[in-house]
């Protein structure tokens, strides 16, 4: 059973930086932290996203639809970053061979 920690960094063109640190145990995200110099209103959104991603199966399509569905559900304004940037960073950090 694979278990690893991954880090990724996505620089949004003309925008901000998103960094994801993520621990994967078996086929699930066991811990995830999203950091960076972006803005979300309200700010608590990111913690809620982290909570919802924890326990999720590491599967590109599942992660992608989870993040999209999350931001559709939340009344949230993102500045300097979009859902797609979070997805890119999360997929990179959660994949065993983190490409640089």
């Amino acid at each position: 059973m694979k278990s690893f920690q991954g880090i990724s960094e996505v620089k949004v063109p003309g925008g901000k930086l998103v960094r994801v640190k993520c621990a994967v145990e078996g086929d699930k995200i066991s811990k995830i932290q999203i950091t960076g110099d972006f803005f979300t209103h309200p700010e608590e959104t990111i913690q809620r996203l982290e909570e919802e991603l924890t326990g999720l199966e590491v599967d590109n399509e599942k992660i992608r639809s989870k993040v999209h569905e999350f931001f559709q559900r939340q009344e949230c304004v993102l500045i300097g970053v979009g859902p797609g940037d979070f997805i890119t960073a999360i997929l990179k950090a959660a994949s065993p061979q983190t490409p640089e």
Binding site: R19, T35, G36, D37, E43
Partner: peptide
């Protein structure tokens, strides 16, 4: 540092 930043980073 910003609300979402990692201090150590």
């Amino acid at each position: 540092i910003g609300f979402f930043q990692s201090l150590q980073d």
